[in-house]
Amino acid sequence: MSEMNELERARENSYLKLREASTTLWGEERTGEVESTLRIASDAIARLSLFKFDHTDSPGFFLGDFGVDAESTNMEKAGE
C-alpha cells in the first residue's frame, strides 16, 4: 500500500514538473495538446525514480559498454 502511495506521489510530482517545463517551453495551449504524451513520460520518469541505483550500475549501451556479451557483463560485476 505504501509502495503504491509512493508511486502515486512520484507520478504527481513528476507530472507537475514536466507540465510546468512544457508550459514554459511550448505554452499553455500546446501543453494541452501534448497532454497524453506528457503523462506517459512523467509516469515513466516516476517509475524509474523508484528504482535504487548505485555507482556500480553503469548505464547501458552508448553510455557504457554496448555490443557486449554476457561473459563480459558478468565480469563487470565480479568485483562486488
Binding site: 512544457s22 517551453l25 511550448w26 504524451t37 513520460a41 520518469i45 524509474l48 528504482f51 547501458g60 557504457g64
Partner: peptide, 21 residues
C-alpha cells in the same frame, strides 16, 4: 514525442540507461 522529449531531465535518461543495463 519531440516536444515532450526535450523536457525529460538528464537524470531520468541516465536512470533509464542504468535500468536497461
Amino acid at each position: 514525442r519531440i516536444e515532450v522529449g526535450q523536457l525529460i531531465p538528464a537524470s531520468a535518461y541516465v536512470q533509464a540507461q542504468q535500468l536497461r543495463h
